[in-house]
Amino acid sequence: MNFRFDLIAEYMPFFLQGMLVTIGLSLAAIAIGTVLGLFIGIGKIAQNPYIRLPFTWYVTFFRGTPLFVQMLLVHFGLVPLIIGDTNGIIAAIVALSLNSAAYIAEIFRAGIQSIDKGQMEAARSLGMSHKQAMRYVILPQATKRMIPPLGNEFVVLIKESSIAAIIATPELMYWGRAMQGQYYIVWEPYLTVALIYLVLTLSLSKVLSFVERRTKSR
């Protein structure tokens, strides 16, 4: 087998460009997904079962259906419905954000509920409102426990952003497929793409384990 490094070199500018788009998509989805996920996670632990219901449905839908399907629904359905036209970048960010929000909501819920209920009782017995107890007592402790699973979710998000290739978002995987289509070669484009994903996910893991160590003390 003749491994064509020359063709990889030729495509490298596209791969690097695609990598930047992948990073951009992931960062946007992490930011939006985290905010949305916090909101949904808090909704899921509401006292009132009727308030909980839509949040539970949301999580059930987005965790129970493939991201592939969600991506197509958003690209050809949701985005045109809202802005009249569709756009690969916007659709990919929206689909990834909606999807990761469901997982992040569960991480927030589990983190909050993992705190011993004596903590809430002690805070309330001192006269704090539910909100104050959450803010000063529960969330600071829960956040530390959420960091490892959140990190996992962010790594998964980087990898799953590759699904955006099927709606022609010019991210990393898109360029891998383009190279395969142009030269009818498999190993060169996909191994290169795999390697770049690996570099991205490993770097993020390193950053996260650093953050974890920094916040571990208490």
């Binding site: 903590q119 001192l126 006269g127 007592v137």
Partner: peptide, 26 residues
């Protein structure tokens, strides 16, 4: 509840805060 202090069997101190921070929080 501000008028009614409570002490629990399991203490329920806030583990992320120092002793003095536990006391002054409320």
């Amino acid at each position: 509840r501000q008028e009614v202090g409570m002490v629990f069997q399991q203490f329920n101190l806030f583990p992320h805060k120092t002793v003095i921070e536990n006391i002054i929080l409320a």
